[in-house]
Design a protein around this nucleic acid. Structure first.
Ligand SMILES: NC(=O)c1ccc[n+]([C@@H]2O[C@H](COP(=O)([O-])OP(=O)(O)OC[C@H]3O[C@@H](n4cnc5c(N)ncnc54)[C@H](O)[C@@H]3O)[C@@H](O)[C@H]2O)c1
Ligand SMILES: NC(=O)c1ccc[n+]([C@@H]2O[C@H](COP(=O)([O-])OP(=O)(O)OC[C@H]3O[C@@H](n4cnc5c(N)ncnc54)[C@H](O)[C@@H]3O)[C@@H](O)[C@H]2O)c1
Lengths: 218, 218
DNA sequence: TAACGATTGTGAAACCATTCACAAATATGA
DNA sequence: TCATATTTGTGAATGGTTTCACAATCGTTA
């Protein structure tokens, strides 16, 4: 059982690594492992054993000294910590190129992120069927989102429309947003926002390529 | 002109913020600003003025005391630092849902990331035309990638195929990879790898939602 | 049941990133 | 031209994250 002890502030990097551990454990389970040591887990994910142990220790002590961590149990613990041992209802706004790709991606639903509503403002798209979901008018968010118990909104509209859509979903009660538009959305303090900005990742790569020589020196 | 002084190790967060500054400056230029202070730039992007100045100071001194930073010039400096004052040839491998979305996204090319080659291993897709580019057989990477002077590879194949594709592009001489498959790719030390993992971002959100109450205490 | 090897869990140390605080430099207006 | 207000650039201080190092604990075997 996951601990209910009060949590100190957990760093973003630790949370990120929990997701990585979870994936690693999934693979280990398939490979037939019953237990895994921090050493081996770290090696697989190019991390240090101490980091693995420290990350986990923020949430409890899940291992057995001399033996390691029980794969199945640790998976469940992490699932509980990450909140992925349950389903979340997701709304997607903007069913264009990226939106369509996400809607047709089955893995999210398998992981418990179930797209329940799709919104757009294009009359040609409203009413059409995407993987069994009828596209709703973005004007109806305020009623539909609470009705369908939506916890997470995924924004895949053009940058120019993103802030307005963002305001709308928050107004409708959503407190967690995944944003694909390349803009800095303004949200209140009690709303969680994550950005998926592919351009920034490409720019990081070009930075690395551009600076690979001087980077080494002094 | 961008400085050629030897760089100390620049942190990932600084590089990330450079991209953010660049976008902010683009907007500021459009709004007619000639100069911008670290204070105002920070306010816009919800950062601190000291952070803005420190980030920039790693690369040179671009501002004027008492006045701020010249918008146009600073943009060019950052573009040069990030390596986006030039074009990069990009190859995309796996033209499925995500791959197609990326190929049809015009902003990347505008930013200098030009998709020159598209690969797949599906005979029905090979030879077909995507936005003016003929899909090549993934088996021909080794010859086509050097021929087209490709610097960056974008991997959008299923997780099960990602490592093999990754090995292939590196074999062909690519040293920068943007990976969308939800797997931890193994690359040599001299290859730059960035991951775009949407599931991890969703898990971060569910963690936040799950832990919002206990997080505050003690 | 005792002894050994393995591995966890965790304070302390080391390292890295952010913020502070102020001298230096410039703009501006009298 | 001088005084004042503004803002940069940067060492030093602070705060946070990662790594170290080791006592505590467990499984295994004799
Ligand atoms: N396509 C890519 O590969 C890619 C890459 C990086 C970033 N992005 C970003 O992702 C977002 C979506 O990109 P895309 O290529 O799917 O765009 P798209 O134009 O294909 O789709 C956008 C969709 O949003 C809808 N829309 C527009 N305004 C709306 C509003 N106010 N309310 C509801 N729906 C609205 C449009 O009707 C359309 O269906 C954009 O912000 C883009 O910058 C896309
Ligand atoms: N679709 C999404 O919204 C989404 C979301 C998150 C992550 N992802 C990840 O992005 C990747 C692509 O997803 P998708 O939905 O576009 O998948 P997809 O199945 O639509 O497309 C994959 C493409 O890769 C090609 N391919 C397969 N093996 C190949 C090989 N060895 N060499 C070259 N081409 C090969 C296939 O022919 C297909 O065209 C996957 O790893 C997926 O897990 C997708």
């Amino acid at each position: 059982m996951a601990t209910n002890r009060k949590l100190r502030k957990i760093s973003d990097s630790t949370i990120h690594r929990l997701s990585i551990y979870y994936r690693a454990l999934l693979a280990l389970e398939k490979e037939g492992y019953d237990t895994i040591s921090s050493k081996e887990l770290a090696k697989r994910e190019k991390l240090t054993p101490a980091q693995v142990r420290k990350d986990l220790s923020f949430f409890g002590s899940f291992g057995t000294r001399g033996l390691g961590y029980p794969v199945k149990q640790l998976m469940q613990e992490i699932a509980e910590i990450l909140g992925i041992n349950r389903a979340w209802n997701v709304a997607l706004i903007g069913v264009g190129n990226v939106g369509s790709a996400l809607v047709s991606y089955k893995e999210f639903a398998k992981q418990g992120f179930v797209i329940r509503l799709i919104f757009d403002n294009d009359q040609r798209k409203i009413g059409s069927n995407h993987k069994g979901i009828i596209v709703s008018d973005v004007a109806d968010m305020a009623s539909l989102i609470p009705e369908h118990n939506i916890s997470i909104a995924v924004i895949t509209v053009p940058g120019s429309a993103a802030q307005k859509v963002c305001d709308g979903v928050i107004e409708s009660g959503v407190r967690a947003i995944l944003n694909f538009a390349p803009v800095n959305l303004r949200v209140p303090n009690d709303v969680f926002l994550r950005n998926e900005n592919m351009a920034i990742e490409l720019e990081h790569l070009s930075f690395s390529l551009r600076n690979q020589e001087p980077m080494i020196a002094e």
